[in-house]
Computed example of a mutant assay.
Amino acid sequence: MQIIAYLGQNAPWSWMIAGLVLLALELVVPGGYLLWMGIAGILTGLLVMFQPLDWPLQWLVFGVLSLVSILIWVRVSRRRGSQTDRPLLNHRAEQFIGQEAVLDRPIEGGFGRLALGDSIWRIAGPDLPVGQRVRIVSAEGPVLRVEAV
């Protein structure tokens, strides 16, 4: 009971300390949510410092600030997308689209194999003989779709 009375007497500082603890937890448990909850805790502490509020209203202010800031952050981060100078880094199959190669094995029954770089890829396309020049037109998972050139 003494702890609750102490927190009630020092509500602004309690909220600010709780906000700082949430910010510190964000360093340990990344994800972004605790960051905005920590900022909401600090803002709640500042509000309570200048405008005393009852505990239920303080929790309501903290909850609303947390939810609003998290929702805004989620919307902005989803709209922003990921900017990179190497968009095909983890999409190896898509890197080959548009390239031409010579078949070292025939395509039979609609499928074959083709050596590209340091790998052998499964290819799909019309039946073609060895030595035929092909162009890679698309990638469907690990299978490259080819056509005769």
Rank of each mutant, 00 (worst) to 15 (best):
P52D: 09
L103Y: 09
L57K: 04
A148T: 11
G41L: 08
V28W: 10
A40P: 05
Y6E: 03
G32F: 10
R86Y: 12
G32N: 07
N90F: 09
L60R: 05
G19S: 06
Q2E: 12
V64K: 03
T84A: 07
V149C: 10
A148D: 02
Y33Q: 01
M49F: 15
V137S: 04
Q9A: 15
E108T: 12
S66G: 03
I4K: 08
V102L: 10
A124M: 02
G32P: 04
S66Y: 03
P30Y: 00
P129A: 08
E147L: 02
A139M: 06
A5R: 13
L128S: 06
V48I: 13
A93K: 13
G81Q: 13
S82Q: 11
T84C: 02
A139K: 11
L67T: 14
L46T: 07
I72S: 02
R145K: 14
Q132W: 03
S119Q: 04
V102T: 15
A148H: 10
G45C: 06
Q132V: 02
T44I: 04
W13M: 12
R105P: 00
T84S: 15
R79S: 13
S119R: 14
W13R: 04
V143Q: 09
N10W: 14
L88F: 12
P52T: 07
L114I: 10
G125Y: 09
I39G: 02
I123L: 11
I120Q: 10
Y6T: 10
V149S: 08
L67N: 03
G41R: 05
L20C: 10
F50H: 08
I72F: 06
E94P: 00
H91S: 08
V130I: 15
A24S: 14
L128Q: 03
I17S: 09
L144S: 08
G81W: 07
G112L: 01
Q51R: 12
A148F: 06
L53K: 10
V146P: 06
V102Q: 05
A124R: 10
L35P: 01
D54S: 14
I107K: 10
L144I: 06
A101R: 02
P87F: 11
A139G: 13
L89Q: 15
R113H: 15
E147A: 09
G98W: 10
I3D: 06
V64H: 11
